[in-house]
Design a protein around this nucleic acid. Structure first.
Lengths: 202, 202, 202, 202
DNA sequence: TATGAATGAGGGTTCATTCAT
DNA sequence: CATGAATGAACCCTCATTCAT
């Protein structure tokens, strides 16, 4: 990669990082393009060389951040020797929860955007933005030795359940802090999975 | 109430109704104060006699609409003769889901705002805006003959679970339409409740 | 008219006058809304209360200025006792030429805009902007005792002929100054009119 | 001409052609340098190697296109055996009108720019851009056996008369389409010429 | 010569808010 | 209480121009 291309990548990343920082601290609508370019140290016009508008950079950030979260969780899972499906899913959930817990602004940002819509979209349109990695997670259910009534719905329910309860708990400690909530959460997830299990006739 | 007071109330309500209509059809940020007062048939300055700004009227709308949803559900429940807790909660969930299903813009508007934050807040600060009515629902769990490990967490989990799954299902039919999803949902709720039940030693 | 309405009219006129001044001295594209409001002494937003955009104010100016020119010429004609059609038309042409000659920026501004398009449009849509007065001129031909092959085309040719030759002559003295050109011009107009005359059989 | 020089000429012409295409389809102010270089397939900086700015390329285009129009008309005239001055001028006018009629965007572009200013300028500064050819036309009048009061003014009046009436007629069919207008036009031109003729005493 | 990334002044426009009436 | 004309800061975005490569 030449000097110019390197510089371009640097500029793009400066913009992404700055935007993320401002979005998470001030909110999307309070953040202006002016704010972003000023702090990123580039000219206003430069922003428009890399992104169509504020919403474009927002979407690219969400996709990028969300996929990173799943990647990290998946990589951590690979290093364990968990075999039971329930255990694996709860490991993932726990890992993701901890990522959010460690970086609350991240949760605030992708917060309720990290819902099924994006999840599913990313699952399908892999590749476009390089490094998306939801597919591994999806495979977990399909490759399980046990069968489930409707794996997609099950996964959907778990994702929605975890993400929406975390939001309130981590950001506002409502109704309880995340550590206190976890046992209930994981218990509930196990119940959810079990309730969808197809028990083979003996 | 005097003629003047009546007129005042009428203006306030015209503003609220118009704002709701515009917020749900155009979105919050696309709606301007101008739009609101124009369609409501009052002068621009008048808006500021009743509301601090756009966010003020938004918040008042959310609280008002959310409480109405719960009231309706609760009233419907009172007309049944259901006694089992699980049945009663599922009846409420179903009723609320159907309200959202019938008025999708309503769901879009209070969407993810109807989370625990508001729920809890309204539960506590009863009265302020006259007609809030979450308390009845809260009593359901407390008055149940069975005991639950942590009623508040249980209720929290149910609310979050239902609201976040509905959102995707009703608005985007993802991963399935609401009718197809319901059995899974209700099943999951029952499991949730059971998992939190304190089984008395015999 | 109340104090407020008077003030409004004053603002509107300040904007129109300033815009005309700037358009004629700097050109349309070199004139910015900023320039206009600054010099007119009103806030930027105020401009948009009265005009849609720069082109809106331009069009309103052209229509207004053009109609004034014809009005003045027509009024002057009424004070003469000319009866011959040729004489009357040449009187009008001369009067208009002199108006342009006295105010070259006016000519530059409505310059080639004062062509048949606007002329005709104004002839038809009388009233809209109050004081348009082309109709009197049109009547001249129709009420003439002599008949012409096609009065509209004749009028069209005269208007285009005069306006385009004036432009070059008055503004650039090309190929000759207007005073030197006039005899040729008026001669040509007389020829034009005669060539379209329908000679009655005796 | 070397390979490099050829390449240079190619680039310059690509820019000219593209600019003309965009100016005539989108208008001068809607066309950006970006548009031009993009479609011409050259880099942005390259534009500035050949032209000072947008107005520079516009002017060069007008001169070039206008001279082509006269050249074509003149060449066509040379192939006829018309001898009478009136016939020759009307032949030229007709030919030019038909060129405009066949390519209305061309008329729109050089439209009212093709007035005496440019005409005269090109007449004098022959050579600069190689292929200008107004001079032939000018000679027509001078070489005529008949004498005219002021040949330059006569030519001026004809050019202005034809160009301004055509504009409205061809582009807007106002007040009549060009075919219907032509007889009147040509009639008027003949009258113009005759009125300027110096009749020799017998 | 040729490139195209970077610039940044300045464009048009919006709109929440004020305040004299 | 109610009005709505006026405000002007701030918005997003464009684009001619430069200059290091």
């Amino acid at each position: 990669m030449g000097k110019i291309d390197l510089n371009k990548k640097k500029k793009r990343e400066a913009l992404l990082n700055t935007a993320f920082e401002l979005f998470t601290t001030q909110g999307l609508h309070q953040t202006t393009i002016n704010n972003i370019v000023e702090r990123a140290g580039v000219a206003k016009g430069t922003f428009y060389l890399y992104f169509k508008d504020k919403y474009d950079i927002r979407n690219k950030l969400i996709a990028h951040k969300a996929s990173r979260i799943f990647s990290i969780a998946d990589e951590a899972l690979a290093k364990t020797d968990l075999t039971e499906l329930e255990d694996r899913i709860i490991f993932l959930a726990d890992n993701i929860i901890e990522q959010f817990n460690a970086d609350k602004s991240l949760l605030l940002f992708i917060s309720k955007n990290l819902s099924w819509g994006i999840f599913k979209q990313e699952l399908i349109s892999s590749g476009d933005d390089s490094d998306v990695d939801f597919y591994n997670i999806y495979k977990i259910l399909e490759n399980s030795p046990k069968a489930y009534k409707n794996p997609e719905i099950l996964l959907f329910m778990i994702v929605e359940f975890v993400s929406s309860t975390c939001y309130s708990s981590i950001l506002y400690n409502e109704p309880k802090g995340i550590e206190e909530l976890k046992p209930y959460l994981f218990d509930a997830i196990r119940q959810l999975i079990k309730s969808q299990e197809i028990v083979p006739r003996e």
